[in-house]
Design a protein around this nucleic acid. Sequence first.
DNA 1: AACAGTGGTTAACAGTGTTAACTAACAAAT
DNA 2: ATTTGTTAGTTAACACTGTTAACCACTGTT
Lengths: 206, 206
Amino acid sequence: MSRNNNQDLRDKLLQSARELLVSKGYRGFSLRQVARETGVSATSVYIYFENKDHLIHTLIEQSISELNERLEKVYGSLTDPEERLKGFAEAYVNYALEHPREYQIIYLASPEDMTRYPKEKFRKARRGYEFLTDTIKEAVRQDIFDEPYPRTAAYTFWAQLHGVMSVVLSKRLDTRIDQQEFIEQAISHILHGFQMRTALQQKPNI
Amino acid sequence: MSRNNNQDLRDKLLQSARELLVSKGYRGFSLRQVARETGVSATSVYIYFENKDHLIHTLIEQSISELNERLEKVYGSLTDPEERLKGFAEAYVNYALEHPREYQIIYLASPEDMTRYPKEKFRKARRGYEFLTDTIKEAVRQDIFDEPYPRTAAYTFWAQLHGVMSVVLSKRLDTRIDQQEFIEQAISHILHGFQMRTALQQKPNI
DNA sequence: AACAGTGGTTAACAGTGTTAACTAACAAAT
DNA sequence: ATTTGTTAGTTAACACTGTTAACCACTGTT
């Protein structure tokens, strides 16, 4: 157990870091604690990560990848655009509910940090958006949606979903509101917002 | 300038804290720095605030109040439910754009902190939701919307808006997407999601 | 056998939140 | 008028933190 320590320790550090971040949350997260947990000196972390931010950033990338894999699975298992869209929403919500802390990690990085990292690193993260953009484009092609800018629409979709889960996970929901109910209704609203708008835009009949 | 220092210094601390948080962001924010800036010893802060979290929390409350005031203004100046809803959205977005750091402060508090504070403190924060809930109820009364749970719908509305602004402010938007365009389209989608749904909602089950 | 590189160490610096112990100023009580 | 208690502030200290510099023990190469 000492040959290719190279990648070995790096992975162990990442795992300890993730566990700590998930169990103690962001506040109780420290490099030294990670090192302690891994049974290694604090400065060793700096051999594999430029600094604390970079370690966390790596964690974020991992989580984004896992989320994207789920989305890809949905994309591959469904063909109807509307079904896919709903599938995306559910996969997204489920990931957030199953891994709340990790989900929050993804959205943790503040803008000032982001700029310090190479922006290309987020290209991989955008894969999820591509699935979504494709789906919307397909829906437009099939005359199901009427979106002039599918990419913008894709970001709108994610943003709304993120808002919903953000509110849920940060426990800002009114206690009188049932969480499950809230999520379902929100998804329903979001999906509905994408349905043909031209016909309804004015005063609806009935 | 030394009589009722009581409230005086407290306010000065809050002001310094806000300036620091806005200029340096959350990372570069420290109690000691706040004290230094105010020209007072670090421990003085503990006379007026239980700890760092409580200080920040007070800042949050202030920002929420300011935001709520804007919403109240909208509520008072418009009567048509749909107009009001749109007005709320715009006021919300404008506040976020004009005071990005302060907006982010509002949504900074992580769930683990929240529980440490008396939940009632957020009652005042809920005023905004009440304006919105009222508006939706009124829309339902006028047969414009068809929302079985106006309160839930209100939270859905906020959540979606928050998601949109969160994405914008954390600079996660694809560089190819115009920010202004994105916001407008998102608002349009969100509002549309509230328009009459009965005719379209074929599959109500998740 | 000497060399450089790698992966790790310990020691130290500057900074943090927070607590404990103290002091100066002032109001009230005797 | 002196004692008392309270209040608003102080300094000193503790246990942390992220990060850097200097060092050390190995490895494989020449």
